[in-house]
């Protein structure tokens, strides 16, 4: 349950971006959350909604896009979207896989009113 501390870090970035752009309001916040990011989107939503009170993002809406785990096999170059976390290539059995997506915890876009 570290979603609240993630939201606190998120608001540091949000407030800095709002200042840089001389925004009066943040109306939408879009995140990309990887399946292996270790974060529960519902908890993130709850933490966001309680944290946003009395901030520049008080009236904002949080959208979370969940990103599946995607890997590339370094041996046979196959790119695979995985349902589980078993890091074995289903095509050639190699364990030499590179994680392309699914670990991220990203602030993707924000909509501002200036």
């Amino acid at each position: 349950m570290h979603e609240l501390s993630i939201v606190a870090s998120l608001f540091e970035i949000l407030e800095a971006k709002a200042r840089e752009n001389q925004a009066t309001k943040i109306v939408r916040v879009r995140l990309k959350v990887g399946k292996l990011a270790g974060v529960v989107p519902e908890f993130l939503q709850t933490a966001f909604d309680s944290y946003k009170q009395d901030t520049i993002a008080a009236a904002s809406h949080l959208e979370i896009e969940e990103v599946p785990l995607k890997v590339r096999c370094r041996k046979c170059t196959a790119e695979i979207e995985k349902e589980d976390f078993v890091l074995v290539c289903p095509s050639c059995g190699s364990t030499d896989l590179e994680i392309l997506e699914g670990m991220e915890l990203l602030l993707d876009k924000i909509d501002l009113e200036i």
């Binding site: 993630i6 870090s9 876009k109 909509d111």
Partner: peptide, 10 residues
């Protein structure tokens, strides 16, 4: 209104 692309790790 402005859409700002951030792409920053939280």
């Amino acid at each position: 209104k402005k859409e700002l692309i951030v792409r920053e790790e939280i």
